[in-house]
């Protein structure tokens, strides 16, 4: 298949590029996701936070968000996002454990997995902060056979994840939760574009405008990966 030839060369290219491997290694590392989310959500409350006290604009936005809107709706969306992030985290953990990738690719997938874990932590903290109960991680199963099929599955999962966040964004009531969701959405898009590049697929498969995927579509798509 011409498609898989292309994929192999893209994978080899990345694997054989010592520059990228080195740079990936130096840049891999957590940046405190929970802390970032706590700052996003805590902008209105803490008086010892100089960034919130010195910016009336931000405080105003927060107050407006806190006074209106449906918290239950936001909690449902957050728990839905948490379910997807649990699946992504499990997926990357299993991929890394399978040892199918080496060098820069392995580093990158590991880094993506760590970012998904930070999303899990942040969403969990946010749900608790809003008075909700975080959903438990579903038991997952993924067909992990060879590097090529796994890279393709990773691309599918990330493109779906980006589409899922995009569809939910306009439904989120709380401005701080929305800001957080947007900051995760674009990271999922970066992951998706990277994996598309690896498998030789177009970086922007939907063209100039990303397409949203509704909850029912997304849940149906991930159902095969959840152990009932």
């Amino acid at each position: 298949m011409p498609d898989s030839e292309k994929t192999t060369s893209a994978l080899d290219e990345l694997r054989d590029d010592p520059t990228s491997r080195k740079k990936f290694l130096t840049r891999v590392g957590g940046t405190g996701g929970v802390a970032a989310m706590a700052v996003l959500l805590g902008a209105c409350g803490s008086s010892n936070n100089s960034s919130s006290t010195s910016t009336p604009a931000a405080a105003g936005t927060t107050a407006a968000a806190a006074s209106g809107g449906s918290e239950q709706g936001d909690l449902d969306i957050l728990n839905y996002a948490l379910t997807l992030e649990h699946l992504e985290t499990d997926f990357y953990n299993k991929v890394i454990a399978a040892g199918l990738f080496k060098g820069a690719q392995a580093d990158l997938l590991k880094h993506f997995g760590e970012s998904e874990q930070q999303h899990v932590d942040a969403l969990t903290a946010t749900i608790k902060k809003l008075g909700g109960t975080p959903v438990a991680a579903p038991k997952s199963k993924f067909p992990i056979k060879d590097a090529m099929s796994v890279a393709k599955l990773a691309a599918t999962v990330e493109n779906l994840g980006a589409a899922a966040y995009l569809a939910q964004a306009p439904k989120i009531k709380n401005a701080e939760v929305l800001a957080a969701a947007l900051s995760i959405h674009s990271v999922e898009a970066r992951h998706a574009a990277t994996l598309n590049t690896l498998i030789g697929k177009k970086i922007t498969p939907d063209g100039a405008f990303g397409k949203p995927a509704e909850m029912s579509t997304v849940l149906a798509a991930v159902k095969p990966f959840i152990v009932a």
């Binding site: 990158l108 999303h119 970066r190």
Partner: peptide, 8 residues
């Protein structure tokens, strides 16, 4: 790194 941070 194409996606250096977990949050953009």
């Amino acid at each position: 790194n194409p996606a250096p941070d977990a949050f953009d």
